[in-house]
């Protein structure tokens, strides 16, 4: 399968997450309403969107790790004469591992998105926990910490005069996750965090 066809699958997962997080989310999330009633709320829309964004970020990171390994075997996975070229970056030993642990950037991405996924699912499963604010702050911190790393990787791209579309997709997923955590933090500080529960409590109190 063409590498850009595979990339479009990762992109589609992330895009679906973005749509769920956007104002369009209320109409799109209707497909989940029966199975996941929490998606009827703004909180549920953002959280479900973030799950898809983290999933897309994870799968594209896993693919870059796969490319890293394939390139070490001597294969060519995403090269070309244009500026879009992964081989020259993921296959470049000067840049393709993190400078502290020496691990491939794809693995670093997988770990990061797994951690973000854990935070998002935990918030989604128990949104009324007093720990929720801590989890949102942890997510914010983790995604903000990702920004200088993205800056470092973009500097490699500028140095080599190449763009790795797969890496860029993972970077975008991190930035979208950051926006998601900002939205969650704002929502948590507002009265709309538990609008569904308020409705239920009001209904009971009227009885």
């Amino acid at each position: 399968m063409n590498e850009y066809a595979i990339l479009s699958i990762h992109g589609a997962i992330i895009l679906f997450g973005v749509l769920l997080m956007s104002p369009l989310g209320s109409s799109i999330s209707s497909i989940f309403h029966n199975k996941y009633p929490s998606t009827t709320t703004r909180r549920g829309e953002i959280l479900s969107g973030m799950i898809f964004v983290c999933l897309g970020g994870f799968t594209v990171s896993a693919q870059t790790l796969w490319m890293h390994n394939k390139l070490s075997e001597g294969a060519s996975v995403c090269s070309g004469n244009s500026i879009l070229n992964c081989d020259g970056l993921i296959g470049n030993i000067a840049y393709n591992t993190d400078p502290f642990l020496g691990q491939p950037w794809g693995l670093v991405g997988m770990v990061a998105f797994t951690a973000l996924m854990w935070l998002v699912i935990t918030i989604a499963k128990d949104p009324m926990s007093p720990q929720t604010q801590l989890f949102i702050k942890a997510g914010l911190g983790a995604t903000i910490a990702g920004l200088p790393i993205i800056g470092l990787l973009v500097s490699y791209e500028i140095k080599e005069g190449l763009i790795c579309p797969f890496c860029t997709t993972a970077h975008i997923a991190n930035i979208i996750a950051l926006v998601g955590f900002i939205l969650l933090a704002k929502l948590h500080d507002s009265n709309d965090w538990a609008s569904d529960m308020k409705k239920q409590i009001s209904k009971h109190s009227r009885k």
Partner: peptide, 10 residues
């Protein structure tokens, strides 16, 4: 539960 899901994915 969230940990199990995330680690399974990883």
């Amino acid at each position: 539960e969230a940990g199990i899901i995330a680690m399974s994915m990883f």
